[in-house]
């Protein structure tokens, strides 16, 4: 995460101060301040490059939109269409199976990591809820 922490001042006690005390202070300061500094959840966004025969292009694009994809380009060639989009990784699980179902097994895709971007609020809430549940289940 891209964050800058600048120490500007403070105080110490000649006897009671120690490295440990400042370590704890820093940790607690972090917990205290982050909630006030407008925290934001970021998710990995992938460069997705899909190839599909023309007949299925509408379905493939519709599906990418449902996966919160941002279309970047589309080109048609003799073999079919190439669609490039930015799609959050969390929406791409099992994509190859769905793509094959949509295109009668003829679609192909590749993806690589592009960047991190802020999650929309509803998605962030969902993620945090799930994480909380996971923690509750453990403890």
């Amino acid at each position: 995460m891209d964050l800058k922490f600048t120490l500007v001042g403070g105080g110490f006690h000649p006897v009671d101060s120690s490295a440990l005390a400042f370590e704890i202070a820093a940790k607690s300061a972090y917990r205290q301040s982050i909630p006030k500094a407008g925290p934001q959840l970021l998710e990995p966004i992938m460069n997705v490059d899909v190839f599909t025969p023309d007949d299925y292009m509408g379905d493939v694009i519709g599906d990418l939109n449902r996966r919160r994809g941002m279309m970047k380009s589309q080109e048609t060639g003799p073999m079919g269409a190439r669609i490039k989009a930015d799609v959050p990784l969390s929406e791409m699980f099992g994509y190859i199976g769905d793509l094959r179902t949509m295109t009668s097994g003829r679609g192909q895709f590749s993806m690589s990591f592009s960047h991190y971007a802020p999650c929309p609020t509803n998605v962030a809430e969902e993620v945090i809820k799930e994480a909380k549940e996971r923690q509750a289940a453990v403890s």
Binding site: L7, D16, F22, A26
Partner: peptide, 23 residues
């Protein structure tokens, strides 16, 4: 033996890709 530490600080978003910076 007690523990005492007080810090004043600024916390701010960094430039994209710089990661964590401490100064």
């Amino acid at each position: 033996s007690g523990q005492y530490g007080k810090i004043d600080y600024i916390i701010e978003p960094g430039e994209p890709g710089t990661g964590f910076e401490f100064e």
